[in-house]
Design a protein around this nucleic acid. Structure first.
Lengths: 341, 341
DNA sequence: TGACTTGATGTTAGCGCGATCCCACGGCCT
DNA sequence: AGGCCGTGGGATCGCGCTAACATCAAGTCA
């Protein structure tokens, strides 16, 4: 209560207040077993009374252990990543590890910067989105000597462990479903981001599958920024104006897909009879739409969970043989906007 | 390249590699001016060659300075908070401060835990959502001796500084607009969360304003969990079934409002003639809806920005007189779902 | 009874850095 | 020549904590 000097509290203050050594206080506060019940209570009372908050900086330096796991992702407003975070948190909550997030905005330079900052806190592990990183980033991750799990994607080479889906294969699967449903004139809409490698791989997979069936993408458009729902609406309108004979529209994410769906329904266009639609990601949002948009679940929460589990296991037992390549299988849901053959 | 032992690198390694003292290396890596150009280059080359990443833990302990700002918010999937984060980041990016986020899930106990963890890293400042905190949390914040900005809300007493809007007044304003438009039979839908104080205050403000005009909320329903869009749809259907003569529906957030709007449009109900609608928050999503939902902008990005600015100012100059109570004014947009008198 | 455990606590020595003070050297003035 | 500065760089200490060992009383067993 006496805020006289407000000099930050240290172990010593608690030790003086409770009449035992600093070491004993440290032991009590870390729940180490070899302290008598009486002392423990005395110390805890003193600590609470003073309002002592341990200094993890000093603790980490002394013990050479930091209970943080760096999580590096491109964005938080993408829906997908908060869900991945949920998966990660669920697992880490049962341990004494804590996630710390860094955002890259899909920029390799920023990823490098964020990673550097993160590593300078010496985390116990890193979970990082994607397999594409600058040479410097890869070098840092390798040199850090800690478990590293690359998530979301498995189409490429991992530094250490990887958990994700094959976006190329997901795109192929969608392409095949489009062919099987008999659509011929395909339009594609997606983000402009040349740096969203996963969206690119999905697109490549899809075009490849379509090509096998002798079908090409008849029109395409890319956007950046703005409200995704509104963009989906606008792009759809523009594309159908430009290329009126399209019979299928593929969107690189559910949000613009939903915008397109709303537009088509307003126009009284028969979906999926006249035009079929598909998005990607299986976001929860879709459940409230007038029609269920066809989509592919990207296994977001599960990716986070598995990644965190790998980290936890590796930290508990550093010499575990790698075992770190988990490929999950996204499932295509046809919803009400993609004919099922 | 020789990863022989992979013992973590320290200043000493760089110092030996470059033939100067550790102190000089430290000076170079912190861009301190009193080092000759020649030495500087030599050191930087050695550091890069070794792939040295400074240890901030040691640095922070030695300098008693940590360039982190704790940001404690209830959720990341609420749309609102990522936008607040954006505002914060934009400001902090021009400084050497870095935000670190903690999530409370709207639970006071978790807030307390997260805060404790956060403070144990001795951040330079804290931005925390809401004005309602446990006694222990308030005590910790006060005792930390660092700038604290409580955001989102100004209806209550702040520990240190506060930036936000008056949710009570926002609710009142909406209530008045509803009255002015001549609606009489009001239905309300919102989240169940007894702990979302801001939603509660908005509701109270609205009912209070309505009461002044002799109007009561005729029906209400609260939900928790699930897809907000779908919930809005379901609750709206259920409420109109139960109380068919409602002529206005107020939603505690835009997402469920959007669900309700989609449902009403499908049912061919005249909005806002037969039934008026309003949400809250002004999320970007709304722009893609068939009709613009009436809403109030909660000044999210601006709140984050102002809060970060206060933190930055206080850190730069700790004895600045408080100056820390910023009330922003939300603007009501009538959109296409609320008659304008 | 003495050698040996066991449990509870204290002592010492860093962890890797940065604040602070210190020194050596060259140039410049009087 | 002597004094004085400014510049580049080194030496020392301590930040607050914990690992590892040391200590010491009170059993425990042959």
């Amino acid at each position: 209560m006496s805020d006289t000097k407000s000099r930050p509290l240290t172990l010593r203050d608690v030790s003086e207040a409770s009449g035992v050594s600093e070491m004993t206080v440290s032991r009590v506060l870390r729940n180490r077993s070899d302290v008598s019940q009486a002392t423990r209570e005395k110390v805890l009372a003193a600590a609470k009374q003073l309002g002592y908050v341990p200094n993890k900086i000093a603790g980490a330096l002394a013990s050479q252990r930091v209970n943080l796991v760096g999580v590096i992702i491109p964005s938080m407003s993408n829906m997908v990543f908060p869900e991945v975070m949920t998966g990660i948190s669920r697992v880490l909550e049962d341990t004494d590890l804590q996630p710390v997030v860094g955002i890259t905005d899909y920029l390799p330079e920023k990823e490098e910067k964020v990673l550097f900052e993160m590593l300078s806190w010496r985390p116990s592990g890193v979970i990082i989105a994607g397999l594409e990183h600058s040479d410097a980033s890869r070098a840092m991750l390798r040199a850090a000597g800690i478990p590293v799990v690359e998530i979301m994607d498995v189409d490429g080479d991992a530094i250490d462990a990887a958990v994700g889906i094959s976006h190329r294969r997901a795109g192929q699967q969608l392409g095949e479903a489009i062919l099987a449903a008999g659509y011929k004139r395909i339009g594609f809409m997606g983000t402009k981001m040349p740096l969203d490698h996963r969206a690119r791989k999905r697109f490549e997979g899809m075009t490849q599958a379509l090509a096998k069936g002798g079908v090409e993408v008849a029109d395409q458009e890319f956007y950046s920024g703005g409200s995704a729902l509104a963009k989906g609406r606008e792009m759809t309108a523009a594309m159908l104006e430009r290329t009126p004979d399209l019979d299928f529209l593929a969107y690189s994410n559910d949000m613009i897909g939903a915008g397109g769906l709303l537009y088509l329904m307003e126009q009284g266009i028969d979906v999926p009879g006249q035009i079929g639609l598909a998005g990607f990601n299986g976001v929860e949002l879709l459940q409230g739409l007038p029609k269920q948009l066809a989509t592919m679940d990207a296994c977001r929460a599960e990716i986070g969970q598995k990644a965190a589990e790998i980290i936890v296991k590796r930290i508990a037992n550093p010499d575990t043989a790698a075992s770190g390549h988990v490929e999950l299988t996204p499932t295509l849901s046809f919803g009400d906007t993609l004919r099922q053959s």
